[in-house]
Nucleic acid binder design. Structure first.
Lengths: 141, 141
DNA sequence: TCAATAGTTTAGAATGGTTTTAAATTCTGA
DNA sequence: TCAGAATTTAAAACCATTCTAAACTATTGA
């Protein structure tokens, strides 16, 4: 259910990407521990720490290929850094502004209604909802 | 109604920012032609074109001060570039992926329901909805 | 009016995540 | 095993944004 592919190799085959050492390593790091929101440099650090040397350029290449193959979703919330979400099912996000953390909101707990059709034409590809959360409630001025 | 302040000067006073030549110029460009979504470099170009020389650093400073004063809202959708929205009322956005254009969706035409409370605690500061639109409907593979 | 001071602007350098380049390496199929 | 295609990589380039420190400007109070 939360395991769309038995292993990294199968996953790469399905995406029609050659199963290189680097891609296998990154796929394992990404998909073998449940849902994650990772930035490129973070993943790079993890790979090095796990004795799986991969260049940063390859991390970027691979992340983008995975997004293209529908294995990852890219999330942009803050300027200057992208996150990659291993959960590609229909869902939304909490964003904790204090420490820039993301948390999934299950897709069926939230509902967006009355979305008008785009004025300039075109078709709706996705609706993203970000609920911005701040830790302390500093109200007033 | 769409004119919260009679003029740029009044607007700066309300924001408790000194009415310098540069800020007045930028305020006029931003607020005297209806709702806009502008990037910093874009606004800088407009200022130069309008014979109101302002440095890019000042454009950034001013935009952030305006955001702090609640005159602008910053919108991050694509990595690497922020947009500033002169409409600070409660509303959401269409995002045209083909040409990176933003269009407002009136706040009352859309409704987000059943937002759960944040699991890690904290208070909800804002809910942002982005409807991603692609021009052509290239379906299938 | 005039300084003193606090706030503002600016050119230019620095930053930092991401992308590009071009050469070396690795994979695949025949 | 070999040729061609895909992939990886270090290093450089990119580019929006931020920082720095010096010059400038607005404001205040005497």
């Amino acid at each position: 259910m939360t395991r769309p592919f038995a292993n990294a190799l199968e996953l790469l085959r399905a995406a029609r990407l050659r199963p290189t050492r680097q891609r296998l390593a990154l796929a394992r790091l990404l998909f073998e521990k449940g849902d994650r929101h990772v930035a490129a440099e973070e993943l790079h650090g993890e790979a090095l720490a796990a004795q799986m040397p991969v260049s940063l350029a390859t991390v970027y290449n691979t992340l983008h290929q995975f997004v293209g193959a529908g294995l990852l979703r890219e999330i942009v919330i803050n300027p200057g850094r992208s996150y990659f979400d291993t959960n590609v099912s229909d869902h939304h996000h909490f964003f904790y502004e204090d420490d820039s953390q993301l948390r999934d909101i299950p897709g069926d707990s939230i509902a967006v209604s009355n979305v008008p059709s785009p004025p300039e034409g075109g078709s709706i590809r996705r609706v993203d909802v970000v609920v911005r959360v701040e830790k302390a409630a500093h109200k007033g001025r």
